[in-house]
Nucleic acid binder design. Structure first.
Length: 398
DNA sequence: TCTGGGGTCCTAGGACCC
DNA sequence: TCTGGGGTCCTAGGACCC
């Protein structure tokens, strides 16, 4: 017994480009590209002419000379995203955001108060259209994976239900590239074996797929091809990394110039970390050399932090370690990403405080404020007043 | 194809511990 | 002095997604 189709995958169409067309009526009906050096998003009019995401701006103009290129307005996209997610959460409490423009919604428990999944999806699409002014496609199926494929197949501005008894007929004839997790490299490996459709992948033994694609990837994709996807809609997922990067072009950069860029990047992400009441433990420096080969260097701290000065010192040390390579090969991209991110109040913080008898609570709180920011102080004060609380065992801090 | 910026997850080797 | 297996953490790299 297979269960019912109660998972919605809702996905805004050509999101950035649609926001631009919504806000500038003269762009409607015209091919629009958001981006500059590279296409971040293309309107359907531009897609019809062969323009694709991640394509160079030059190539887009060659394919479509009358394309309108507009610079990205991230604030406008964030605002539109928040408005759409508010409608998602008003539809069901079980929302799992996947990215700025798509989410899974579990609506199985709503039949008596809100109707069938299809009725719920129709209302959702109408509301997003009326209240935010954007087109959104929705796929409905028994599993997250099938719902995601269904929304993609339904685009643009579509609604598609895959009933449980129609799953094989829907999925097996599709090309393997439609599988969520199959990109250029994996598709090429499968093609070399003559495997072009999902159905052909499903006919393999699982062990064969694992040998070809790696244990986890092979087992996962093979299960998807056989319609097995046990992942429930997960409302507790939180971002586990925060990063920022900057492409540099090919001209030479002095060490001072790189340091300025690094400082701006770290300052920005440290601020985002604190704004989200998060701390991190691992700092990753990402580089792309003059020959476009990528590299990364990372350092894990003994205790989590959100302090710009600490993060910057670590990032600078990592960059210094890479200087010989950079001098030799040149550099075309620099980025920093912070991982092992956790809520500030969920981690035990180690403080470089000497807890000899004479230390007073307010002295300790000053140290907390210096190291972890003012927001941490009320929490620390609370702990300090707890009669069951005793000073932590301390160790030397990096 | 003269190549953005934000993420997720997996792999593999080495260090270290029991 | 030589040896085993399992588990976790860290680092670096790679594939993939929007």
């Amino acid at each position: 017994m297979r269960g019912e189709a109660t998972v919605l995958h809702a996905d805004l169409d050509a999101f950035y480009a649609s926001v631009e067309q919504r806000d500038a009526p003269e762009l409607r009906g015209r091919p629009v590209v958001v981006g500059g050096g590279v296409v971040l998003a293309a309107s359907y009019e531009a897609k019809a002419r062969g323009v694709r995401t991640a394509m160079g701006g030059r190539q887009a103009r060659d394919l479509c000379p009358d394309v309108v290129v507009v610079p990205p307005r991230m604030d406008a996209y964030s605002a539109a995203s928040r408005a759409v997610f508010a409608i998602f959460r008003d539809t069901t409490p079980l929302v799992e955001g996947l990215s700025i423009d798509e989410a899974f919604l579990e609506v199985g428990g709503l039949r008596r108060i809100a109707g069938t999944p299809e009725q719920i999806a129709m209302r959702l699409r109408e509301r997003v259209r009326a209240e935010v002014g954007l087109a959104i496609s929705v796929g409905i199926a028994r599993t997250k994976f099938l719902a995601k494929v269904a929304s993609a197949v339904s685009k643009p501005d579509g609604l598609l239900v895959v009933e449980p008894e129609r799953e094989e007929a829907f999925l097996l004839p599709l090309p393997v590239e439609r599988l969520w997790g199959v990109g250029a490299v994996t598709a090429e490996k499968l093609h070399r074996l003559g495997i072009r459709t999902v159905g052909q992948l499903a006919e393999l033994e699982s062990a064969t797929a694992e040998r070809l694609l790696g244990k986890a990837t092979g087992a996962h994709l093979h299960a998807l091809a056989r319609l097995r996807d046990p992942r429930p809609v997960d409302t507790t997922r939180r971002r586990s990394a925060i990063g920022s990067q900057r492409a540099l072009g090919s001209r030479l950069r002095s060490a001072d110039e790189l340091d300025v860029i690094l400082t701006q990047i770290v300052d920005r992400i440290a601020r985002r970390l604190r704004d989200g009441d998060r701390v991190c433990r691992t700092v990753v420096l990402r580089l792309r050399y003059g020959d476009f080969v990528k590299a990364s260097r990372s350092r894990t701290l003994r205790s989590p932090t959100d302090r710009t000065a600490v993060l910057l010192a670590v990032a600078r040390a990592l960059l210094a370690g890479a200087q010989p390579e950079i001098a030799e090969r040149g550099i075309t991209l620099i980025g920093v990403s912070l991982s092992q991110v956790a809520r500030t109040d969920s981690v035990q913080l180690e403080l470089p405080i000497d807890w000899d008898d004479g230390v007073r609570l307010d002295t300790a709180l000053d140290a907390v404020r210096d190291r972890f920011g003012a927001a941490s102080v009320s929490r620390a004060a609370q702990l300090g007043r707890d009669p069951g609380w005793s000073p932590p065992q301390l160790s030397e801090h990096e």
